[in-house]
């Protein structure tokens, strides 16, 4: 066992402090240490994107990051986006447009889509498909996921215009 490190993380706005071995993967920190089980473990080999979180403004696969690397970072998971009482427009759109079947990929999919829409608020269908290429879904064939993200983009843009 290697020496434990003092780690500080801000997860969904809440500061967390703990001791951990540097080799601990961020996905395990989130799920097993902090009980934040929205991000899922799918392939655990950086391919499927089920473990996607936003870390310091980047979409990252939390299975491919040591907790030591993330030390000091700000992390947002699906839990930080919206809850049952106040769904994020993306969550609402996935529900409305049937953007999920089994739901396993959904937290990663929505977390990634949120970053995509932040960078490109008016994506084409092609932009969406390219932008979620790091997230695999084995149920939907992606059709309704793409539809959901485009619908959420429209809702978010309309809300932004209304606010201006």
């Amino acid at each position: 066992m290697s020496k434990k490190m003092h780690i500080t993380l801000t997860v969904n706005g809440k500061e967390e402090e703990f001791l951990a071995e540097p080799r601990e993967l961020l996905i395990y920190t989130l799920r097993e240490r902090l009980n934040i089980t929205g991000p899922h473990i799918g392939c655990e080999t950086s391919h499927c994107g089920a473990c996607t979180v936003t870390l310091n403004g980047k979409s990252v696969k939390s299975c491919t990051m040591f907790v030591a690397q993330a030390n000091g970072a700000e992390v947002t998971t699906i839990e930080g986006m919206g809850g049952p009482d106040a769904l994020h427009p993306l969550q609402e759109a996935f529900k409305e447009h049937h953007g999920l079947q089994c739901g396993y990929c959904t937290p990663g999919m929505i977390t990634r889509a949120a970053k995509l829409l932040e960078e490109n608020p008016n994506p084409t269908e092609e932009d969406v498909r390219f932008g979620i290429a790091g997230n695999l879904c084995r149920c939907t064939g992606y059709q309704n996921i793409v539809k959901s993200i485009l619908a959420a983009a429209a809702t978010m843009n309309a809300a932004k215009e209304a606010a201006e």
Binding site: K58, S59, G134
Partner: peptide, 9 residues
């Protein structure tokens, strides 16, 4: 190269 998440890192 790879996918969006990997290209951020």
């Amino acid at each position: 190269i790879a996918d969006p998440q990997v290209r951020y890192m």
